[in-house]
């Protein structure tokens, strides 16, 4: 087996465990965080702080490198545009997130836990991505959008 498949698998596994430990995989806790006007549970702000504290130095060190430790081409986002798709897409995503309490990672983890409602959400989410894919052809490298 290729080493990069194993490392991607391990990264996914650790990511999933992090979602479970943090409480982000629990929609009720996510919605309690998003409910500023209710009795607010600030926990999830600390998830972002913990993740970024690790991410900052590593992304800093990775900057400008061409190859990863395993010799893979580094593929970092190149777009710096702050445009309409970014804003509208972010808003649509946020509405969905606020309705169900699921963003993509936790939905996959909760699907892995066998939660029927998570499976339904995930199927709808993948359908949404499929709809975007169909509307967005011909694609430009998977991140394309209408000009």
């Amino acid at each position: 087996m290729k080493k990069t498949l194993l490392t991607a698998f391990i990264a996914g596994l650790v990511f999933g465990l992090g979602l479970l430990v943090s409480g982000l995989a629990n929609p009720a806790k996510v919605l309690a965080f998003l409910d500023l006007a209710g009795v607010w549970d600030p926990s999830l702000a600390l998830v972002m702080i913990g993740a970024i504290a690790v991410g900052l130095p590593v992304f800093y060190l990775a900057k400008g490198r061409d190859l990863s430790v395993l010799g893979e081409q580094m593929k970092l986002p190149t777009s710096t545009d702050i445009d309409r798709p970014l804003v509208i897409g972010g808003l649509l995503f946020g509405i969905g997130w606020g309705l169900a309490g699921f963003c993509p990672g936790p939905a996959i983890v909760a699907t892995g836990a066998g939660e029927l409602k998570a499976i339904v959400f995930t199927v709808a989410m993948l359908s949404g991505m499929g709809i975007f894919h169909l509307l967005n052809r011909p694609k430009t490298g998977g991140r394309g959008r209408p000009a």
């Binding site: 897409g89 649509l92 975007f132 894919h133």
Partner: peptide, 18 residues
């Protein structure tokens, strides 16, 4: 409805929470 919004929104906006 939420799943569809998250699916379309994250692709249109090129990313999510992660």
């Amino acid at each position: 409805a939420a799943g569809l919004l998250v699916g379309i929104g994250t692709r249109y906006g090129s990313g999510c929470t992660s």
